[in-house]
Nucleic acid binder design. Structure first.
Lengths: 164, 164
DNA sequence: AGCAAACATTTTATGTTTAAAATATCGGCT
DNA sequence: AGCCGATATTTTAAACATAAAATGTTTGCT
């Protein structure tokens, strides 16, 4: 017996069966799309810039806030745990891309900013990143784009309701 | 200084600035939605059934194939590495939820199936899982649902193109 | 038969991610 | 001043994930 089941390329949502309900089918398709794009971006970042997605994401947050952000801010915005931010920031700091300085008036917190080298590095990466995303999502018409944005906003709100 | 930057709840896409282009904004919103739902499901599975999402996912694959699947099939369908499947399957096996039996005619492969206990356990979980997903995504109208499914399919195809 | 290439899986080393515990600081209250 | 609950961060332990090497099996070729 070679293999049990089908042998074509397979992903989360193409295995769904009749019995599954609409919401689950939509969820699996959403998950597949996001995973595919994330995987693509992750691979490009590694091969072109030798950086991981989380590190890029952390730098992207800082690039938007020239005043800097605390570790807690970063954790919130990146939607990952604080311990995770600790590790990622430690690496970026050792590479000289970010700096963590004490905040005067609050000795618990650090103010994290991009170093000059970090700013320059991020500028390069951001340009390439935007092009990669456009490759994946640029084929949608304006109306499809608007529709998607609206639907996803609604979903986001609904999940927010459920969580509380 | 309490916190640098704003203090409302924040996620990937609400921090996007004017300068960012459409595709990036859509990507961040997509990512946010998927992360929120995934996080919700992960938390529910842990608190209600004391199981992780990868383990649930593996069981879900098996539930769809009563004949069983090989380790390689599982790796393909779950879109994760073979080594990863080995670890997850080892845990589920030790909990008695799946069994791995040799395939007659091919001594390299294993045929992995849900045990009777695994089937019963999965049935419970699947029902709850579907309800959780419906809570998150059930608020869409039929036309919104169709539109989303279509748009996501197109995106999936486009990413596939880019990858090759 | 004998050998090489492909296959199916596991092991190993490394790194990511989370939840929870630990550490340290802050702020308000008595 | 002293204490307590909240805040900010780091550390720890366990689960997850990947790539690459190792193991054993199969298949096809000569």
């Amino acid at each position: 017996m070679e293999s049990i089941g089908v042998q074509e390329p397979i992903d989360h949502e193409s295995r769904v069966e009749q019995g599954d309900h609409k919401a689950v089918r939509l969820w699996l398709r959403l998950l597949t799309c996001t995973n595919l794009i994330e995987r693509h971006l992750r691979g490009q970042l590694r091969s072109e810039f030798d950086i991981t997605l989380p590190r890029f994401d952390l730098m992207a947050q800082l690039a938007r806030e020239s005043e800097g952000l605390t570790m807690g801010d970063l954790s919130q915005r990146m939607m990952v745990s604080g311990g995770n931010v600790s590790g990622i920031a430690a690496q970026l700091e050792s590479e000289g891309l970010i700096s963590r300085e004490p905040v005067q008036g609050n000795r618990r917190a650090f103010c994290v900013t991009l170093t000059r080298a970090g700013q320059a590095r991020f500028a390069e990466m951001a340009e390439a990143h935007e092009a990669w995303v456009a490759e994946c999502l640029g084929g949608l018409s304006d109306s499809e784009y608007d529709h998607l944005m609206r639907a996803l906003r609604q979903i986001k709100l609904e999940v927010g309701e459920v969580e509380r």
